[in-house]
Amino acid sequence: MNDHIIKVENLVKRFGKLVAVDNISFSVAAGEIFGLLGPNGAGKTTTINILCTLTRPTSGQATIAGLDVVRQQSQVRRLIGLVFQDPSLDERLSGLQNLRFHGLVYGVPAAVREPRMEQLLRMVELWDKRHHKVQTYSGGMKRRLELARGLLHHPKVLFLDEPTLGLDPQTRNRIWEYILELREREGTTIFLTTHYMDEAEKADRIAIIDYGKLIAMDTPEKLKKMVGRDIISVKTDDNDKASTEIKLRYQIEARYDGDGLSFEVANGEEFLPTFLKEFGTRILRVSLRRPSLDDVFLKLTGREIREEEVSDTFRAMIRQHGRRMRR
C-alpha cells in the first residue's frame, strides 16, 4: 500500500476567472478506494477530467503510475477506466456493440473480450437485453452498462464519477459488491465521487473538496472523530440512580433524553462492553450513535449533503430525458 498510484501536486484549473480546482495535492495508494466528496460545483469532475487526460490543468502536476497526465497521455489512458458523470453511450448501438467497441479501442483481444463481455453483462443483469439498442434501456440500465464498459479492459485505476446516481438501492448494493470484489481480486484502485454518505463510508480514505480546495482528507473513522464524540443512549430500570452512578464511575454528565439517558464518550465501541458488564441486567435498552459523515460534511462545508438529494433526482431526470439540454 506504499506505492502511490495517483499523485497530485499543486493542481490548479481555471476556467476564465473561475478557479475550479484550487491548488490541491493528494496521493492515492494502489488498491485503495478513494472517495472525493463535495457539494455541487466543488471541482470533483474537473479533477477527474484532469486525471483522465480530458482536461489540461492550468498548473501543477498529476501522475498515474508515475506517468504524467499531460505529457504521457496515451500511456495513462491505457491504465484507466472511467464511468463519467454524464451519459456517454452510443444510444443507436446495442449494449453488446457498445462493449465491443470499447474492447476494440482498448485493444482487448477477442478471445478475452467476448467471454468477459458476457460475464460483465450478466453481472449488471443486461445479458438478456444485450441485442437491444441502448435507446430502449432505462436510466438505471444505461448506468449499469457504463459500469460494465468501464471494467471491460481491466483498468488499474477506475474513476467513478457518481456511479450510482439514479440507481435503485438493490442495484447500488450489487454494484458495490462488485466494486469491492474487484478491488479484492485484481487490486484495482478506485477513485470515486458520490453524494451518498453510505457509499462514502465504504472508501478507505475520503477527501472533502469545497470551492476547489481540499478541506479535509482522512479515513471515514477519523473524519467522524474529528467532529464529535459517540453518543450512548440508555434506558435502565432506575434512570436517576444510573445517572448518579455514571457520574461517579466515569465522570460523565448524562442528560435525560425521552424515557432514558444519553451521554457522550470518546470511543463508544470500547466503552460499551465495560458499561454493559458493570450495569448488567439493570439496562433495559442501549444504543450507540456515532457522528455520521453527514455531520462531518455539514461541519466542514456548512452545507448538508442531503440537500443534494433533491438535485440528484433532478439530475438523474436530466440524464434520462434532457440530454440535449447539456453541452
Binding site: C52, T53, L54, S74, R77, R78, I80, L82, F84, D86, P87, S88, L89, D90, E91, H102, V105, Y106, G107, R149, R323, R324, R327
Partner: peptide
C-alpha cells in the same frame, strides 16, 4: 453529434490517438 450525446468522451479517453 457524438459530442452532444457524450459519446465523444468515451472516444477521447481511449488509448487511441
Amino acid at each position: 453529434w457524438d459530442r452532444e450525446f457524450g459519446f465523444l468522451k468515451e472516444v477521447l479517453v481511449a488509448p487511441i490517438s
